[in-house]
Nucleic acid binder design. Structure first.
Ligand SMILES: [Mn+2]
Ligand SMILES: [Mn+2]
Ligand SMILES: [Mn+2]
Ligand SMILES: [Mn+2]
Lengths: 159, 159
DNA sequence: TAATATTGTTAGCCAAGGCTAAACTGTTTG
DNA sequence: CAAACAGTTTAGCCTTGGCTAACAATATTA
């Protein structure tokens, strides 16, 4: 620390706000986020495949590419990975289907997604905004928070 | 679609739930999330550096590595990138400092983070859980939702 | 002050998730 | 039924964000 510290205004915290959390707790925050990032794309794919099967009767790679706004090549590579994870089954040039595990993941993800979306709407967020926010938030909401969101939404509807 | 469709239960949607959003809107959801992912780690670093400067007077690479639970090498590489983006200034083996742009980003990110954290606590989420959830959620909350969260928290406190 | 401990950097590796271009398969249609 | 079109796959590239191991610089302390 020199006298020419260019952030002088930050070095003497007159009003330091919340203190920093303990190192271990702080590290846990970031670690949990990194962890979520590893699985979230997988969940989005599986959830979308489930939705396409439910609403359209089939899930084609081209639909996924369009709905996600990524290239078909990207989808193709991801499908290979979903296959390796035994979440989907696929025959070349045919519709995708979900394995047991895939169906389970799709249901769980869809349920979580819906709770977050409905919560945001109950809060007063416009539908289009709520959909965008929910798509990202869903992967970072703990079970505890999820339960609270669900209760909140239900109470809102009983008023 | 063959007769041996293993997801038969999903192909005739008796209760199809919400319909799929229009393709363009759906694509926008995923695109917004991908976009957030590009900047969120940068924001976390800058925000943490600002916090360390405010609360500790200096921001060392080792502190960041400890608080984020990543290796020093990872931090070192990231600092180079923050330097290239002109968000931080650094001399070898010395504390980091934020540029003007860095300070601005730190403030914005911190403010957003706090609004989400305080909102979750106001909702009734336990502090430790709220901190973990906020760390991920903050990057996926629109300005619209953020404003609503802030209003909710204030009203909660006036009761 | 010399030895040791701490801190920071660099090099080289990996996986994930994007992309384009090119090849291949299946479907539709003149 | 052949040609054109649409859908799918593959190959090869890129960036991000992790990692470990080896090395360099600074700080501490015997
Ligand atoms: Mn989802
Ligand atoms: Mn999502
Ligand atoms: Mn933050
Ligand atoms: Mn964060």
């Amino acid at each position: 620390m020199t006298d020419s510290n260019p952030n002088a205004s930050l070095t003497a915290p007159s009003i330091p706000g919340d203190a920093l959390p303990p190192v271990e707790q702080h590290a846990q925050q970031y670690a949990t986020v990194r962890n979520a990032h590893e699985t979230e794309l997988i969940e989005d794919y599986v959830e979308l495949i489930g939705d396409l099967l439910a609403h359209r009767g089939e899930a084609r790679a081209a639909d996924i590419a369009n709905r996600m706004a990524v290239s078909q090549a990207t989808v193709s590579k991801m499908i290979r990975r979903l296959n390796e994870l035994e979440l989907v089954t696929s025959k070349p040039y045919r519709s995708l289907f979900l394995t047991e595990a895939g169906q389970k993941m799709a249901e769980t993800s869809r349920a979580r997604h819906d709770i977050v979306l409905h919560f945001l709407r109950a809060l007063g967020v416009r539908d289009a905004t709520a959909r965008i926010d929910a798509e990202g938030m869903e992967h970072h909401v703990s079970d505890e928070t999820l339960a609270i969101m669900q209760r909140f939404t239900e109470q809102q509807q009983n008023n």
